[in-house]
Nucleic acid binder design. Structure first.
Lengths: 340, 340
DNA sequence: GAAAAATATCGAACCGCTTCGAATAATTAA
DNA sequence: TTAATTATTCGAAGCGGTTCGATATTTTTC
């Protein structure tokens, strides 16, 4: 058996509670006893047991991380990166992160992570589009919540979001500046706030530069936002009598699918068709040509979410600020801005 | 405050310990009281608190999942998939999975996950090549360990491994059967047992079919096993006076890099150069042509590892079996077996 | 120099559950 | 019918920490 606080107390010749005070940096401990205790701790290689602490303090030191499973199964390690960011930051604050995936539809029996039932987390980070019902359930259970990359139509929540509107706007402006006048939009389900914002950004850019909004150039509500979806959508757009000369896709997968469609249509990217994606996933570097895209700082989102939730946990506050994270245009080959 | 076992006991009019017996399906409980208690539990919506249980039983219900961080940062969600497999299976056994990443070099101060110090896991799954020192440290701490996809040169450990030798053998035989005689090998650091086994499998296939082993066709010890590594290695091989007509890469990233090299050398894949990879990562579907590869069942590895560790935890046994997982050849466009 | 205030340490209660021996009730064996 | 089993329930003692009120010791204040 590994040593307990009692062993330390005995060895140091002090009371158990004194040891506890030393460990927790309580006030009113003399240097002398502090040293004695620390020495005993060192010699015994003592580490307080988390479980005992949890019971006594009623703080678990755990943060739940909930992710809609469909995101985790997709190829891009987008959310994995976010998770990694949380894990890293959580470690600094001495928290563990418990990851669970849930199905998108809410099911009171299955959707509620065990750790909520078992009172085993101090706060929960919800990532991507999970069901609003689940979000509400957790919020109502009184436990702090932070949302990442999703925001329900109703309600107020602390959240870390991508500045989607601005990002999309910049991406499209970039294309416009390169001389494009017919810019297609390829996007996922528009009822996802992120996508809808990106669509707005697209529209805003067109407007601002006095370009017509042509609905035939818009392929939205693609169900999976997958490469396949992008491929099919792009193929359709490219068959128009006057096809677009540039495409803005709301994620890199679809952008990659578009590139494939262009190649099959014997079009050269970027000369015949410029393509800009969104997310900056790793693979986007490996396409031919490499993809120009809006980078989303994934780890950073995780980091900020953890800071936010730790703050909420510690302070007991109920603030609901949104944090908007700026994206960054990464210019590679697919938009034609860099002449090779 | 949510209800505790006391509340249930009071409501049901029984002793606390009786409630506990009902919950834990102890023997010697009459139907009548069982029903009474269950009713009270239902009405109060009672859930035992994990932390209290942990303290009382000295079982945490947690499994540690340790991963060398460099793996997690790479694009392919290979280990993510494995992790997902563990999380899924762990849930079934009512365990949580705590993920930590560690640096590859062992550092007694930083490498040892907190949950080990804090006695907060019942067992640990180590994935990929982490330092042997860490593995030993954990093993010696007396806590059950299961390794996934790595096995140190010395020592005995329960493990879940890919049948790398057989897999590589089959991949190369596939190329031989397609008529190739000059087959290149592109591989990562050979001191990784998986890679070394794949190299052996490669050699074995050549031998068996009476093909010469030509060291100029072998590019091994590529440091990162990245697409870039594969690209550079392939470029070199393709510049030989008599270049290979086929390449076997020890992972898909390198295979993808090889395809890029071929394209740049104006070689058509698979006609001028056949390529077979290993792993079957998602992106491999999206290359042009799609990659033929050996599929590694990632989720399955995670599942098996969890089953194994739960067994070790429950039984207290110290078995050290290796479990070899078979790979499966996925024939797509890059090997030339399917005529398009 | 005595009262008041601040500092240092201790003991005991408590967090919410499990578990084990004791107590009681119901059955069975003799 | 009584002793011996067996089934059922209970009470109390942990598990390993934290925390708060009490006590003892110093230091400050006037």
């Amino acid at each position: 058996m590994s040593p307990t606080i009692k062993d330390v107390a005995r060895k140091a010749g002090v009371a158990q509670s004194t040891v506890s005070l030393v460990i927790n940096e309580g006030k009113h401990i003399s240097q002398a006893t502090r040293q004695k205790v620390l020495k005993a701790i060192r010699e015994l290689n003592y580490h307080p047991r988390r479980s005992a602490r949890v019971l006594a303090t009623r703080k678990t030191g755990n943060i739940g991380f909930i992710l809609a499973d469909k995101y985790f199964y997709q190829a891009e390690p987008f959310y994995t990166r976010i998770f990694l960011g949380t894990e890293f930051e959580a470690r600094k604050h001495n928290y563990y992160v418990l990851l669970t995936t849930v199905h998108e539809e809410f099911n009171p029996k299955k959707s509620i992570p065990r750790y909520l039932m078992e009172k085993n987390v101090d706060g929960v980070i919800l990532t991507g589009k999970v069901s609003d019902a689940l979000i509400l359930y957790i919020k109502n259970s009184g436990i702090p919540v932070v949302l990442i990359d999703y925001f329900p139509k109703e309600g107020k929540f602390p959240s870390v979001l991508i500045d989607n509107l601005q990002g999309a706007y910049e991406a499209v402006v970039h294309l416009i500046r390169l001389g494009h006048r017919r810019i297609g939009f390829i996007g996922g389900t528009i009822d996802h706030p992120s996508i809808s914002d990106r669509f707005k950004g697209y529209g805003q850019a067109l407007e601002e530069f006095g370009l017509p909004k042509n609905s035939s150039l818009v392929a939205k509500d693609l169900p999976d936002s997958s490469a396949e979806d992008g491929y099919r959508a792009a193929r359709k757009l490219l068959k128009l009598s006057t096809p677009p000369t540039a495409l803005f896709a709301t994620n890199d997968s679809m952008a990659m699918g578009s590139i494939r469609a262009a190649r099959e249509a014997q079009l050269k990217v970027p000369d015949d068709l410029a393509v800009v994606g969104f997310d900056d996933i790793e693979v986007a570097t490996h396409t031919h040509p490499p993809l120009t895209t809006m980078r989303v700082p994934k780890e950073e989102m995780g980091t900020l979410a953890v800071r936010k939730i730790v703050e909420l946990i510690d302070s007991g506050d109920k603030f609901n600020e949104k944090t908007l994270i700026a994206t960054e245009l990464i210019v590679r080959g697919s938009c034609g801005a860099t002449k090779v």
